[in-house]
Design a protein around this nucleic acid. Structure first.
Length: 490
RNA sequence: GGUCGGUUGGCCGAGUGGCUAGGCACUGGUCUGCAAAACCAGCUACGGCGGUUCGAAUCCGCCACCGACCUCCA
């Protein structure tokens, strides 16, 4: 099978044909969360986007090893380099063991992300479990002369690196510009230049998360964990490195610098960055405190939320925008996504009801090609969804007898719809509707529908409407059709 | 201040030199006892100014505004 998947590579700023280093194997590394708080809508974006990539690559027949790390150590609370790291600070506040905090939020992350029908990655390494590997990378950088020790801490020498390499090749920056971008923060004195970054930090006496090393009792800097773990599980060179656009600089730039020195080459061939979720036009994130957690979305318990939103609505909402565009949160937009998704999934559920005809009035081949073309064009999920809605129109038309399908085309269409919607986009039918109800409930509702039908037959509209309206109050929607009423529980 | 990106109809959101994005909302119609759903039709836009071109929302220049990054952030 010949694939023509193109992906936008941040490194070249162009869409490039995707050619794996060692087909059919594909190595994919994505920066995961720092587990010191509940996952919010912003965390869901890369999880869903790279889940789409993971699913599509697998569908194309690739054997994908998807590594998504967990940062549970090393992140400094602020760049006053004396600061505690995020996990440790949270632990002090909550009087918990740091690992207890990390575990707690990791569990919460898993729970809510998996609710969005995100597949588990192949490997989910934790930074705290790879101190040895990180020290190994640090050692190699020191041995090559591109890092220096200062008061027990180790810093990467960016200026020296930039003499032979381009620090800024990924983010499009020039080091000279960084010289002028002065931000005199506390605790910079250990560094030769403010843009040097920590590979290893000596722990202060009160710092709980610490590991012994030949330099000091301390902990690794943030950037080195990804270099160490990606190399360990995917090799020193692998196919795709992903993450949020906000990690482009400095995090990914630092990763490249570390790998170039430690391993002799850049780590990944393709760099993919998902854009941000915004709220009122601004990035949703920790810093601004304008985030809404996934739990709040699912329960509706947030002052900005008009109601609860289902996981699939959230997922569909994200997939309706291209991953490199920002996507703006609003109740109105979510409502539109909710209704659109319902239209999509209901059409699919109508498929078995279509009676095959002698001709097919829909160009299935073209439809299939267009769907693949959309995905192959840098994972253009909004275009794919637009094509799926074209099929929705035809399906509904067939149910109404205005369109027709031959039996084999009908099953083909059914396969394609399930493939794209469920397997690739990962949109599951709403679990609160469908046939998963107790038999007693089904029986009772059918009884009421029959009573209503009898009322309708004798033109007793009062009774008929009462049954329909009262059921509606209880969340049971009735829809009349020629074959009788259908029902659905909200 | 520097780097990068954006500005599309009532809302969300694709696209990219000529040809309908799509969804939601709204309006009219068909169907229905009424409603819902569905179907049909309508609403038809590309920040401003200049340039290139037979033709630009799409290419180029300038301007305005917004955002991301430059400090931890998905």
């Amino acid at each position: 099978m010949e694939h023509v998947l193109t992906l936008y590579n941040t490194l070249s700023r162009e869409k490039e044909l995707f050619i794996p280093l060692n087909s059919p194997h594909v190595g994919l590394y994505v920066c995961g969360p720092t587990v010191y708080g509940d996952p919010h809508l912003g965390h869901a974006r890369p999880a869903v986007i790279f889940d789409l990539l993971f699913r599509y690559l697998q569908h194309l027949g690739y054997k994908v090893r998807y590594v998504r790390n967990i940062t549970d150590v090393g992140h400094l609370e602020n760049d006053a380099d004396e600061g505690e790291d995020k996990i440790a600070q949270k632990a002090r506040i909550e009087e918990l063991e740091p690992m207890e905090v990390a575990q707690h939020y990791l569990d919460r992350y898993h729970h809510f992300i998996y609710t969005l029908n995100v597949k588990p990655p192949s490997i989910e390494p934790r930074a705290s479990g790879h101190i040895i590997e990180q020290l190994g990378v640090i050692k190699r950088i020191l041995d090559k002369g591109y890092a220096y020790e200062s008061n027990g801490s180790i810093y990467f020498d960016v200026a020296k690196y930039n003499q032979k390499h381009h620090y800024g090749q990924l983010s499009g920056r020039v080091l000279d510009d960084l010289y002028s971008a002065t931000r005199d923060l506390e605790g910079q004195s250990e560094k030769h230049n403010h843009f040097d970054f920590a590979l290893w930090k000596k722990a202060t006496p009160s710092h709980i998360m610490r590991w012994p090393s030949e330099y000091s009792d301390g902990f690794p800097g943030w950037h080195v964990e990804c270099s160490a773990m990606s190399a360990k599980y995917l090799g020193e060179t692998f196919d795709i490195h992903g993450g949020g656009l906000d990690l482009l600089f400095p995090h990914h730039e630092c990763e490249i610098a570390q790998s170039v020195i430690a391993h002799g080459h850049t780590p990944a061939h393709y760099w993919m960055h998902n854009n941000m979720v915004t709220i009122n036009g601004q990035k949703m994130g920790k810093s601004l405190g304008n985030f809404i957690t996934l739990e709040e979305f699912f329960t509706g318990q947030h002052k900005l939320l008009e109601k609860a939103w289902s996981p699939m609505t959230i997922r569909f909402f994200m997939l309706q925008a291209h991953y490199r565009s920002t996507v703006d949160f609003s109740n109105e937009a979510l409502l539109a996504a909710e209704k659109g998704l319902k239209r999509l999934t209901e059409a699919v559920s109508q498929l078995p009801k279509i009676k095959p005809g002698s001709i097919t009035t829909f160009d299935l081949t073209s439809f299939k090609e267009k769907c693949y073309a959309a995905l192959n064009d840098d994972l253009n999920s909004p275009i794919l969804i637009a094509h799926l809605f074209e099929a929705v129109k035809v399906i509904n038309g067939a149910v109404a007898g205005k369109e027709s399908f031959k039996a084999e085309d009908l099953s083909q269409l059914s396969l394609l719809m399930h493939l794209f919607i469920e397997d690739i986009l990962g949109l599951l039918p709403d679990t609160t509707s469908g046939q998963e109800h107790p038999k007693v409930l089904e029986g009772v509702i059918k009884l009421l529908i029959n009573l209503r039908q009898e009322a309708k037959t004798r033109k007793d509209w009062t009774t008929a409407d009462r049954i329909r309206n009262d059921l509606m109050e209880l969340g049971v929607t009735l829809r009349d059709s020629k074959e009788g009423a259908e029902w659905d529980i909200e």
